[in-house]
Simulated scan of single mutants.
Amino acid sequence: MGKVTFLPSGKSMKARAGQTLVSTAAAARVVIPQRCGGHASCLMCRVILESGELSSPSALEVRKLPEHDLAKGIRLGCQAKATEKDCTIRVPENRLKSVVQAALERQRKENEEWD
């Protein structure tokens, strides 16, 4: 069993070889968004392999993702599978979530200035 570490949360989980990143993330309480139920059709579950090793890209990944994305370590969480080796995966943050967090941080700083 290899250990999968998810960024930016920093949560880690042991994974059996062959277990998908989506199922490993769910066990670690990390959300990898998806809408298609693991059929590689929505492409929402893109993740980035930062270090370590994953299974070779599936036929669906090769068909759905541009070659230059695969070369950069971009994979589909519903298709990419853990191996016996450890790996670190970056789950891109939702753009809306990051905009809301930035607005809340600005508001917090403004409130501190008034106190």
Results as ranks from 00 to 15, higher is better:
residue 102 A to W: 13
residue 48 I to N: 06
residue 111 N to P: 00
residue 41 S to N: 06
residue 37 G to D: 10
residue 76 L to S: 00
residue 80 A to Q: 05
residue 24 T to N: 01
residue 80 A to G: 07
residue 56 S to V: 04
residue 115 D to A: 06
residue 62 V to F: 01
residue 12 S to E: 12
residue 76 L to Q: 01
residue 29 R to P: 00
residue 8 P to T: 01
residue 40 A to T: 02
residue 7 L to M: 13
residue 47 V to N: 03
residue 38 G to W: 00
residue 109 K to N: 13
residue 66 P to G: 00
residue 82 A to N: 11
residue 43 L to Y: 08
residue 38 G to F: 04
residue 15 A to C: 06
residue 34 Q to M: 09
residue 101 Q to P: 00
residue 91 V to Q: 03
residue 90 R to P: 00
residue 52 G to M: 07
residue 47 V to Y: 03
residue 12 S to I: 07
residue 96 L to E: 09
residue 98 S to W: 02
residue 81 K to L: 02
residue 57 P to D: 05
residue 61 E to R: 10
residue 3 K to L: 11
residue 85 K to H: 12
residue 104 L to S: 04
residue 114 W to Q: 15
residue 90 R to V: 04
residue 90 R to H: 12
residue 9 S to E: 13
residue 25 A to D: 04
residue 101 Q to G: 00
residue 20 T to Q: 04
residue 53 E to C: 07
residue 82 A to M: 03
residue 44 M to D: 12
residue 42 C to H: 01
residue 85 K to Y: 02
residue 111 N to A: 14
residue 11 K to D: 11
residue 29 R to C: 10
residue 7 L to G: 06
residue 16 R to W: 15
residue 48 I to Y: 12
residue 8 P to M: 05
residue 47 V to C: 11
residue 8 P to E: 03
residue 112 E to T: 03
residue 78 C to Q: 05
residue 78 C to G: 08
residue 26 A to M: 12
residue 32 I to T: 02
residue 54 L to A: 03
residue 4 V to E: 04
residue 40 A to G: 09
residue 13 M to K: 15
residue 53 E to G: 05
residue 54 L to E: 02
residue 63 R to G: 00
residue 26 A to E: 10
residue 109 K to I: 15
residue 19 Q to C: 11
residue 21 L to S: 03
residue 93 E to N: 09
residue 90 R to Y: 14
residue 16 R to N: 12
residue 75 R to S: 08
residue 16 R to C: 07
residue 44 M to Y: 04
residue 48 I to D: 00
residue 6 F to S: 05
residue 24 T to I: 13
residue 111 N to C: 03
residue 59 A to K: 11
residue 110 E to V: 13
residue 36 C to D: 13
residue 24 T to S: 14
residue 110 E to R: 15
residue 16 R to S: 12
residue 70 L to S: 08
residue 61 E to Y: 10
residue 57 P to I: 09
residue 70 L to P: 10
residue 114 W to V: 15
residue 54 L to G: 01
residue 37 G to Y: 09
residue 28 A to K: 11
residue 44 M to Q: 13
residue 74 I to N: 10
residue 99 V to A: 10
residue 21 L to F: 08
residue 4 V to I: 15
residue 71 A to T: 10
residue 91 V to D: 04
residue 44 M to H: 09
residue 43 L to N: 10
residue 10 G to L: 13
residue 37 G to I: 06
residue 16 R to F: 14
residue 38 G to N: 02
residue 67 E to L: 11
residue 62 V to T: 12
residue 41 S to E: 12
residue 89 I to D: 05
residue 114 W to Y: 09
residue 71 A to N: 11
residue 35 R to L: 01
residue 37 G to P: 05
residue 70 L to H: 03
residue 2 G to V: 03
residue 36 C to S: 11
residue 34 Q to H: 13
residue 15 A to I: 01
residue 105 E to N: 11
residue 107 Q to G: 06
residue 6 F to N: 02
residue 16 R to Y: 14
